[in-house]
């Protein structure tokens, strides 16, 4: 084996070692280790966010229903009272208040 061939082998081994090391670093084994036990405060915030979203949706539904009722009420006048003159004896008398 000549020196030239030996250098080529050495270079190939060096490139291989570099690529293996790159792949190992890119895999970020430390990150998966840290997310395996999530922070309870973050979890609580996520739960709270979901609850607030649900409540906001419920409030929007109630508001929409109330707006609809108010719109109906504003367009529908109250029924006119029924009144007529009769000859019955009155049960009570209304005077100037």
């Amino acid at each position: 084996m000549t020196d030239h061939v030996a250098r080529l082998y050495a270079l190939a081994v060096a490139v291989l070692v570099f690529l293996v090391a790159w792949a190992a670093v890119a895999d970020r084994p430390w990150a998966s280790a840290s997310t395996a036990t999530p922070d309870p405060r973050v979890q609580a915030l996520i739960v709270k966010q979901q609850r607030v979203r649900t409540e906001a949706l419920a409030v929007q539904r109630v508001l929409a229903a109330r707006r609809q009722q108010a719109a109906l009420a504003s367009t529908t006048p109250p029924p006119a009272p029924s009144v007529r003159v009769v000859t019955l004896p009155p049960l009570t008398i209304t005077r100037t208040s």
């Binding site: 029924s82 009144v83 209304t94 005077r95």
Partner: peptide, 29 residues
């Protein structure tokens, strides 16, 4: 329907009132 007496100038009339209200404003009292 409720028979309600209403004062008039010369006496009283009776109105049969149902689902409604009456109010009188005046200076006679």
């Amino acid at each position: 329907s409720w028979p309600v007496g209403v004062e008039t100038a010369d006496g009283q009339i009776t109105l049969a009132l149902e689902d409604g209200a009456i109010a009188t404003s005046g200076t006679d009292r």
